[in-house]
Amino acid sequence: MAWVEKHGRTWRVRYWREDGPAGSVPGFQSEPEAREHAATLQDHRTPQPTAPAVRADAPLTPAFIAPAEEEPAGVGFADWLETWWDTIDVGDNTLASYRSLTKNHLLPRWGSIPLTGITPSQVQVWVKELHTTHRPSTVSAIRKLLALILADAVEEGLLTTNPVRKRNRGRTRSHDPAQEKIWADEHEVRAIASRVLQLASPNQALLVITAAYTGMRWGELAGLRRENCHLSGGQPRLVIHPQSGALHEINGHLTYGPPKTPASARTITLPAFLAELLANELNRHRHAHVFTSIDGKHLRRSCFGRRTWAPAVNGTNLSDGTVWKPLKPGLTFHGLRHSHKTWMIEDGLPDVVQARRLGHRMGRDIDDIYSHVASALNDKLLSALTARWNRSVSATAA
């Protein structure tokens, strides 16, 4: 039988393996979760048959010669994982993602298997099966995590090679046509914001406009506070703080923390029209955060996406009988960030401007070069954004 026990801050499932020693499946956040998994495991410890009695003077025959001892199976995947968690240093969001993928995919398949028992062909068959039930991006994330865990096992000397290998034979997915990321032009952004205004509030409509015209991520926008908005005197700008510039939502809990990467801590200059809209919004309410739910609380991505974003872009039927046709099916909120990058490409802005704007890392030499022409390029960027805004306003008024 399998049993559960507390292990540090989490719970783990213990069970008897076929080779004798007890195995372990760690990483469960609660005892009920551990017990649920324990119920799926079989007890492989079975009684061994008793050999018949043999007289001391009886000759040995092949039937009574003890079989050679098998070599030990080595460290199990679950046992290595238990150690591996203590070796990684990643952000809270990444850690939560790793634990979810591990619990739902890696442990059910590999938890009871020794590291040395994982073969490339087994991994390939498993990944192929995952593609039949999961999105390509999910399968890629699962495969990459398994590769990372086993690569560290190689460095630890527990494996000689990593069984998660790149395959260049057969019908590889690299031959599939690349899927273009969905983005919106300035007119579509304004139309989406107009629908969000009807579904939610002027505040959340401005959230959509700010996302499209700055390229900020959801967490950076949801965590944006008054003190990080410099909207008057000189160049209007928003500041993404390196230690608290993003609002993270992990397992339902909201906390402040660093943005996605060190390069994401940045200053974002604003066109005059957007600075004015933000200033008016901050004068309208007294909340600490710029963008909030209708009742003034923290924004939650899942709630906004389900109640507001999805019907705005995919279409819906309103209670008054109005039918909204799909406006930009499949566009995600993160797609507004892709839109901002596409706009910069269309407007002929160099890669270094795009990287600095979006918080992507570039070489120090490139940053030094950019510093000499930053003012001129920034003016070009803001002028292009203002022109887009004016076009969208004119089209709406026409």
Rank of each mutant, 00 (worst) to 15 (best):
A34N: 04
N314H: 14
A73S: 15
H134Q: 13
P163S: 07
L224C: 00
T83V: 07
E220Y: 11
V164S: 00
R388F: 04
S392K: 00
K341Q: 09
S100G: 12
R14F: 06
I240H: 09
R143N: 09
I268Q: 03
W183Y: 10
I209M: 05
Y213Q: 04
E155I: 02
V208Q: 02
T160D: 14
A191S: 11
P52C: 08
W343R: 12
F77Q: 08
R135V: 04
S24V: 14
A222N: 06
T132W: 06
I369H: 13
K181S: 03
V373C: 05
A38C: 04
A211L: 02
R217A: 00
A205I: 03
T87L: 14
L206H: 15
K341H: 09
W389G: 01
E180S: 06
L95W: 14
P49G: 11
D19M: 05
W343V: 03
P259W: 15
V13F: 05
S137Q: 08
P350C: 07
P114D: 14
A56Q: 09
L318Y: 00
L199N: 02
R306S: 07
R307W: 03
R135P: 03
A384D: 04
S194V: 02
G111Q: 06
S244N: 13
R190G: 00
G296N: 02
L238I: 10
K260F: 09
G23H: 11
T332Q: 04
A34W: 05
A58Y: 06
G335Y: 00
S394V: 05
Y256C: 02
F333H: 00
T87P: 02
P163L: 07
G20M: 10
L197S: 00
V90I: 11
P163G: 12
G234N: 08
D365E: 15
A205D: 03
L331M: 04
G252L: 11
R45N: 11
R190W: 02
P62E: 12
M362S: 13
A66Q: 12
S244D: 10
M344S: 05
G111P: 04
V189D: 00
D19C: 14
W110S: 10
N378L: 04
D320K: 12
L336K: 00
L231K: 12
S264E: 05
V123M: 01
P108N: 05
R266Y: 04
Q235S: 15
A191L: 10
L331F: 08
H253S: 04
L158I: 02
I118M: 11
Y370K: 02
I268A: 01
A68S: 15
E71G: 13
A53L: 15
S140R: 12
P326R: 06
H253Y: 08
T116R: 15
L159T: 09
K103E: 09
I369Y: 11
A398I: 07
G20D: 09
A78Y: 02
R14I: 06
S30R: 06
T46Y: 12
R361Q: 13
S232L: 15
T116A: 14
T214F: 01
G359P: 07
V75N: 13
H285C: 08
G111N: 07
L107C: 06
N168H: 13
L107W: 07
K103T: 13
D86E: 14
N390C: 06
S302D: 14
L381H: 02
